[in-house]
């Protein structure tokens, strides 16, 4: 019998943090869809105040179609590089839906926004997950990941509670990258004492990988944040 905890079972307020380009937005969007498809009410907020392109807002239409509520800065400032935090965000934390996902900007700089919500987070149970792609600069060592974790926790005034493994080279990801990435986050989990919540696998690689070897759930990724010459994948 398959004893692998196959399903991701996240609910409540979940904050996704990590270093620049670790895949926070792509994973947040796919996680939102995955949970919604399991019958959970999902709201997602784009708290990325530092990144100018490739943000959750790019996927608003496809998420809305699936009945996922997307909270964004006001329309007139959507394409500005201004640190605008919609007042709706505080409201959605005070009255969270079954899963309230906060997609935060990169590094400690991006996570600083969380400290401004400190009052709102009080008396709420919050899960803050650090995404790690060991194929990115600065998070290719356990020390690098722990350093970023410390910087983010300090800036956010919140503690990281778990890890998401997101080893990928976008279109060039190989099954080997997934395997070695899994081993890396396992080691990180051991050394940090943080549980490994799940790892990601591009959906097109699922058939090439023996998922039973993973002791954590797997989130299939249908890539949404694509350059203009490619099409976003249909959610599987």
């Amino acid at each position: 019998m398959d004893e692998r905890p196959v399903e991701i079972n996240l609910s409540g307020i979940v904050i996704i943090v990590g270093n620049y380009g670790s895949g926070k937005t792509e994973v947040s969007i796919n996680l939102a869809v995955h949970r919604k498809r399991h019958g959970i009410d999902v709201r997602i907020a784009d708290l990325d105040l530092v990144n100018p392109y490739f943000r959750t807002r790019e996927a608003k239409d496809s998420l809305s179609k699936l009945g996922i509520d997307v909270v964004l800065p006001p329309q007139e400032y959507l394409q500005a590089d201004l640190p605008i935090l919609s007042p709706l965000v505080a409201g959605m934390i005070r009255r969270p839906s079954e899963l309230t996902l906060l997609d935060v900007g990169g590094n400690d700089v991006g996570a600083t926004v969380l400290a401004t919500l400190e009052d709102v987070f009080q008396d709420k149970s919050v899960t803050m997950l650090q995404i790690v792609n060991p194929l990115r600069p600065f998070t290719d060592t356990v020390e690098g990941c722990l350093r970023i974790r410390g910087e983010i926790e300090k800036a956010a005034k919140l503690a990281v509670n778990g890890i998401i493994g997101n080893a990928n080279l976008i279109d060039e990801t190989s099954p080997d990258d997934i395997s070695s990435g899994y081993e890396f986050v396992q080691t990180l989990s051991g050394e940090s004492g943080l549980p490994l919540e799940f790892i990601t696998v591009p959906r097109e690689l699922l058939s090439a990988i023996d998922l039973n070897r993973f002791e954590c759930p797997v989130l299939p990724i249908d890539r949404q944040l694509v350059p203009p010459w490619q099409k976003a994948k249909e959610f599987g």
């Binding site: 380009g21 194929l135 990115r136 990928n168 080279l169």
Partner: peptide, 10 residues
Amino acid sequence: GKVLMKGNEA
């Protein structure tokens, strides 16, 4: 080997 980088970082 290959790494995943943003153009600006690269």
